[in-house]
């Protein structure tokens, strides 16, 4: 993260607000995962050890809610930034710099598979975001919102059951748990695999911290 190693004309991949949001979500999400899994799998030994460390399930629940507010706050800021990008900066939602999936992603995927099996000499040249990154981004963005909504239902069941039937709370509980497992699996296996263990990025893709794209 040395500022001096960049020339001023190195292209900027992530602006400061995205770096900041990533940094906050990194800690918020880890906190959510640790406290949430400890609550969801409370009978297991690691969960019991963690509960002992932080002073009981009520503290874990409290920390879980704090982390949730911080993390979901980042989602909201990100969504607001999207609006600013579209209407304030008159940015395009499609094109090579976009996070929105396009037909090229399918072609890239085919090309990439062919490359893996030795049918192509070179890997595909991705746009700003590759198809893998787009899948991860949208999985996370949609997942955060379902987690947020189901989490709110579980946080304020009295308020929500005024408008929706009671079994939605049970539904929310089930969804919240399995979506959480899915999110944790995606983050801790696929995201870490992509950002650290790909040959192009090993040992770490630092562009989300420095903001600069790595050498092409």
């Amino acid at each position: 993260m040395q500022a001096t190693s960049f020339t001023p004309d190195t292209p900027i991949r992530f602006s400061v607000i995205h770096r900041l949001l990533h940094l906050v979500v990194m800690f918020g999400f880890t906190g959510l995962a640790v406290t949430g899994l400890s609550l969801g799998l409370s009978s297991t030994t690691p969960a019991r050890g963690f509960m002992w460390l932080i002073g009981g399930a009520s503290h874990a629940a409290m920390l879980h809610r704090y982390c949730a507010v911080v993390t979901y706050g980042c989602v909201v800021i990100h969504a607001l930034w999207f609006l600013y990008y579209k209407f304030g900066l008159a940015g395009a939602w499609t094109g090579p710099d976009s996070i929105v999936p396009s037909l090229k992603d399918l072609k890239d995927f085919k090309h990439h598979l062919a490359y893996f099996f030795g049918l192509e000499k070179t890997p595909p040249r991705f746009d700003k975001f590759s198809y893998m990154e787009k899948i991860e981004y949208w999985a996370l963005f949609i997942g955060m919102n379902t987690m947020g909504i189901t989490g709110l239902v579980l946080w304020y069941p009295e308020c929500f059951t005024r408008y929706i039937p009671g079994f939605f709370v049970n539904l929310a509980q089930t969804l919240h748990f399995y979506e959480a497992v899915l999110a944790v699996v995606v983050k801790f296996f696929i995201h870490i695999g992509m950002a650290h263990f790909r040959p192009e990025t090993y040992p770490a893709d630092t562009s989300i911290f420095t903001g600069r794209s790595h050498k092409k």
């Binding site: 993260m1 040395q2 500022a3 900027i12 602006s15 400061v16 607000i17 770096r19 900041l20 304030g88 900066l89 911290f209 903001g211």
Partner: peptide
């Protein structure tokens, strides 16, 4: 104004992580 904020926040970020 967008460029000005971008440039100054870029500088602040680079100083914080140095």
């Amino acid at each position: 104004l967008h460029r000005k904020i971008s440039l100054s926040s870029e500088t602040i970020w680079n100083i914080i992580f140095s």
